[in-house]
Design a protein around this nucleic acid. Structure first.
Length: 332
RNA sequence: GGCCAUCAGCGG
């Protein structure tokens, strides 16, 4: 049972629906489909594969066997597809909502931009844990309401709720979008004081925050101190230099990351092109967008064409911009 | 007891 569960989980995470269906059939044949634990895994597997209808069938077939997990999982499945209405209906029908159910809905509402509604739920819910706090803080941070995010962060600590690494991620993001360098430093110090080692995720957020606040020196110090550097940490550095129009350092990073065996991706190149715009380097821009295909096996998409058109039209090369767009396979 | 919610770089 444990191994079947693990396989189902893998199917969900790697979205291999056909394999998942086979296991489902197998479970039916063996009469194991009455197992609540496995049924929950099935719902989750279908949900992650985007097959909400199948997930729902399993859920419905459970009848009175359903537990809080089943409900939470099916609600999350609808939310994953952006089906907020259906998720809300189930949430309202759910008999014994727990902290996870509430938090799931808070996250979903925030993802749709309904932060105020999420806040209502947050206040209404009977008890909150660190994840609930994280969800609402991330919601404000995502919806460019960094100030509220930071206020909530204060509030949570007044209520003696200990922030964890996800909390720090969200508030650092809020600082980054606000350009709040001092607040950001304070949070960085707090992370250090809490002896939370900078893992790759929080570490990238710290780097990004310093970069967005324009302090590339501090960004670099943290960057170097991280256990590993990946495409995202490099990307945060490159974006920082790009925003400053520091083309030199942008090229340097791009070169360096390749040396270290980290492959630049589409996001990296949209920053590189942004650097070209900010530094007014038309030839380099032309070269890098070609280099994406030629040297990196990447396909430029709308983001890159937007940059290059911007760059070319600023330089007065409108005709060239048009021909470039016609040659691309992007509709816009 | 085990299975569910919050999660880092560009644009959207």
């Amino acid at each position: 049972v444990r191994t079947i569960a693990a396989v189902l989980k893998k199917c969900g995470n790697s979205k291999v629906l056909t394999e998942g269906r086979h296991i489902h059939q197998f479970l039916v044949q063996r009469g194991l489909n009455k197992n609540v634990f496995l049924s929950n895994q099935l719902i989750q597997m279908y949900g992650k594969c985007g097959a909400v209808q199948d997930a729902r069938k399993v859920f419905d077939s459970m009848h009175r066997q359903r537990n809080a997990f089943s409900w939470n999982i099916i609600i999350a499945a609808y939310n994953l597809q952006g089906l907020l209405k259906e998720a809300t209906e189930l949430f309202e029908q759910m008999p014994h909502r727990n902290v996870v159910s509430w938090t799931t809905m808070i996250g979903a509402l925030c993802r749709h931009g309904y932060v105020e509604k999420a806040m209502e739920l947050f206040k209404e819910m009977p008890q909150r844990n660190v994840v609930s706090w994280n969800a609402i803080i991330a919601g404000y941070a995502e919806n460019e309401q960094g100030v509220s995010a930071l206020e909530l962060f204060e509030e949570m600590q007044e209520e003696a709720m200990k922030p964890d690494k996800v909390t720090f991620l969200s508030v650092l993001k809020a600082c980054a979008s606000l350009g709040a360098i001092e607040q950001g430093r304070a949070i960085h110090n707090q992370i250090i004081r809490n002896r939370l080692l900078l893992g790759i995720m929080v570490g990238s957020a710290v780097v990004d925050k310093y970069a967005k606040c324009g302090s590339m020196e501090e960004a670099y110090i943290v960057f170097k101190s991280l256990p590993i550097q990946n495409v995202i940490t490099w990307g945060a550095m490159i974006e920082g230099y790009a925003q400053k129009g520091d083309a030199e350092m942008t090229w340097h990073c791009l070169y360096d990351m390749n040396l270290k065996g980290i492959k630049a991706d589409e996001v990296t190149f949209s920053s590189v092109l942004a650097a070209c715009i900010n530094a007014g380097l038309v030839d380099e821009g032309r070269w890098y967008i070609k280099s994406m295909r030629a040297n990196h096996g990447l396909t430029p998409d709308v983001r890159h064409y937007t940059c290059i058109t911007d760059l070319l039209s600023r330089a007065g090369c409108l005709y060239e911009a048009e021909t470039l767009l016609e040659g691309s396979d992007e509709p816009d």
